[in-house]
Design a protein around this nucleic acid. Structure first.
Lengths: 235, 235
DNA sequence: CCGACAAATCTACCCGTGGTAACTTACTCC
DNA sequence: GGAGTAAGTTACCACGGGTAGATTTGTCGG
């Protein structure tokens, strides 16, 4: 099957699988018989399903199937599909969750920075830290799409973080008197940089995280303080 | 099915589908009967298969299936699988092809540049031009993987272009006396920038190509002439 | 108190896709 | 002429996303 899978790096927060024997298709639940359940509706709100999805992905890897996720949630597939939409919707929801997590970490790290460049370094460091802990989730979100809308899949995470970044960037450039129209493009560019470098690092991991942080910080730093237009014309 | 598909932008070089009625699974070939063919081996060398794959992808879209590609090549699936390996190998081969194409275009554009920054602009412009023409192929290569090795899939193109770029970059930084150890990281970063911005542009296409070229050139320009280490420490 | 309808769930299935085993035919060499 | 081999095609498998239909329980009117 997969290849990356577990490899317990730091493994924060949510502990691994409850138990659930997530054997994909051959679901082995308490085997409730079909039909309307005895005690009211089943207890599966969206948040629980998402948490279960995260648990499953964390333990199985980015190739976790919908069936496996349902099993981890102690629920059958139709319930899962009723709770979150299809797989794309699930990816979207998890992307949201991951972006929130990154934002939190990044925000916390940045406020206690002493200088702008130090702030950027904290940003990068916090970002890498979250990804390193949630690597399977990260891979699921960035490459887990089911088939069509290939473009949208790859951009799920990016879309959710590009606009805030672009806003910041535009504000800063407005203040500097430099052309702010590049903001959105540059935001996607920055995210692309982080994403690709991170992927490469997750796979080949030749640098340690400190080195990587330094390199990335240097690159983004010099990129961000871009001195307006290099050659001659504007947008 | 897909969503992006054709949209004939400029459509260079290879003309569209021969005809082939590429109906995916229900193959409708001249219906050669099974068994060893009458006149020697079948004529399907790797390069022809790759060309057929490109044709199929170009006309069907990035969701072209192996069966459809085989049909376009006037060949049955096992022949296709014998010629190229599995789908990952096909993606790899096409990635190589696309990288060559980009390199050619980029090289041609860059030599007639008058200044470094103009060279960079030519680089970006040529890159975008190739992608714009071969968008389906590009999407197939960057997101067409079959399932496992999600990381490798996304990096297929990147791996094939990062090292050359890194070499150039390291040489230049050595000449400048700036730290060359960042080269590989920065190379992946640049590619990530190009990739993500391109994806975003292919999907949302709000800027015209000239604007996008300007923005990207400005970003890469300021990023590349990075003044070594911004804060204090080295790698 | 009973029967019909509605609600909620699970099972079993469908479909498409990557990949291959098994069957079929033609050639070749003794 | 027949056994063995080379070359291809068909039919199939496995598996993952997604859903229709069977199945049971609760509810409400008569």
């Amino acid at each position: 099957m997969a290849k990356a899978t577990t490899k317990p790096t730091t493994q924060a927060t949510t502990q691994a699988t409850t138990q659930a024997t997530a054997q994909a298709s051959t679901v082995r639940l308490p085997r409730r018989s079909p039909g309307r359940p005895s005690g009211g509706r089943i207890i599966a709100d969206r948040s629980q399903l998402l948490a279960a999805a995260e648990r499953a992905i964390r333990s199985i890897g980015p190739d976790a199937t919908m069936a496996a996720i349902a099993a981890e949630a102690q629920v059958t597939k139709p319930i899962l599909y009723r709770g979150v939409g299809d797989k794309d919707a699930l990816v979207g929801a998890l992307a949201e969750l991951l972006v929130d997590r990154i934002n939190t970490a990044v925000g916390a790290a940045v406020v206690e920075a002493t200088s702008p460049s130090d702030g950027l370094r904290s940003f990068v460091s916090a970002y890498l830290s979250v990804i390193d802990d949630d690597r399977n989730l990260y891979l699921f979100v960035t490459a887990g799409g089911s088939s069509d809308d290939r473009v949208g899949q790859a951009l799920h995470l990016a879309d959710r973080s590009a606009h805030p970044i672009a806003t910041l960037l535009a504000a800063q450039r407005n203040a500097d008197g430099t052309d702010p129209s590049v903001a959105l493009t540059w935001a996607y560019g920055m995210i692309g940089t982080l994403h690709f470098v991170t992927l490469w690092w997750l796979r080949d991991g030749t640098l340690d995280r400190d080195q990587l942080t330094n390199h990335l910080t240097a690159l983004l730093w010099s990129g961000l303080r871009g001195d307006t237009r290099p050659q001659g014309e504007a947008s």
